[in-house]
Design a protein around this nucleic acid. Structure first.
Lengths: 165, 165
DNA sequence: CGAAAATAGTTGTATTTATCCACCATTTTC
DNA sequence: GAAAATGGTGGATAAATACAACTATTTTCG
């Protein structure tokens, strides 16, 4: 039996703590969940060139699926600025995953193209991402709620993207 | 009228791009949304000691609401490791927002206590967080969906927390 | 009782990220 | 043809994240 007469705070457990206004704040949950999903994903991607940070996976997939896509478009999709995306592409290019070529239409712009090595990596990463989404969320969100969640977030994302433009 | 006969990829817009498997991947939306919410929040918190990174806001609120709460409990709530939380607390203490005192019950542990300055900051931040949650999400997620979303994420968070333990 | 294991917290380090800003070239606008 | 907008690069800075090692206590349990 534990002594509870101390003046000191009793051993408060994490699950007993009141979260203050965060209890009903969407951003809190989004942010915490994000760091967990991202960390989990990173461990699964360990050693591959797309681990860590946001935007690498998306960039790789989009270049794979949209030959000639431009850097600025990738930045828009990921909702980041051009210089951040440029660095990711530098990284990809130096590892032989993509090539860049000045656009026929606009000499300022350059299109991104996947290499065989990049395509192989994309395939591998695709499998990992799909698998992680299932194994990470299945234990913590029931199937039907996952569907609801996906719909809500998808719409939110598109509205956000429109607003940015 | 634009010339579409070029061999090059046409000017693909961000909203036209297919997201590959990410289209139906929860983690993609969570991650993108997170970076936007976090950036938005940071700009609103500019100059205050809790800007940037995750866990500062939560820590401040919890210490404010739970005098004597321990560092490791805070780490559990935010789902981070102890050293990361320790650094945040160092930062807070050096700025006079909290004090730490060795626990009566356990000489290894120390309780965190808010100072007047810390409490004032917490009040200010509370207002900002509540306000941002509304103005950020209202334009991109309808009210009733926000309620659904909150419920789903809240339950997911608690399941995740249990799983960690 | 006393050794071993678990827990609380700190520290160090290395790797990256993220952000901001200025800059150059090209294209579009008017 | 000048001015403004756009696409992309590069630098500098600040910060966060993650890991692992280490000390000091406390708990476990043979």
């Amino acid at each position: 039996m534990r002594d509870q007469t101390k003046t000191d705070a009793p051993s408060l457990q994490a699950r007993d703590v009141a979260l203050d206004v965060l209890e009903d704040t969407l951003s809190f949950y989004i942010r915490v969940l994000d760091s967990q999903v991202s960390r989990n994903l990173d461990t699964r991607l360990d050693g591959l060139e797309v681990a860590r940070g946001k935007g690498k996976i998306t960039a790789l997939f989009l270049i794979d699926g949209n030959p000639g896509i431009r850097s600025s478009v990738l930045a828009d999709v990921v909702l980041k600025d051009r210089s951040a995306m440029g660095r990711i592409l530098d990284h990809f290019e130096s590892h032989g995953l993509i090539t860049r070529r000045v656009s026929d239409q606009d000499n300022r712009a350059q299109g991104c193209f996947i290499t065989d090595k990049g395509a192989a990596l994309a395939a591998k990463v695709r499998a990992i991402v799909v698998e992680q989404s299932a194994t990470f969320f299945d234990p913590i969100i029931p199937q039907e709620e996952q569907v609801q969640l996906l719909g809500i977030l998808k719409r939110a994302y598109h509205r956000l993207q429109q607003a940015e433009a």
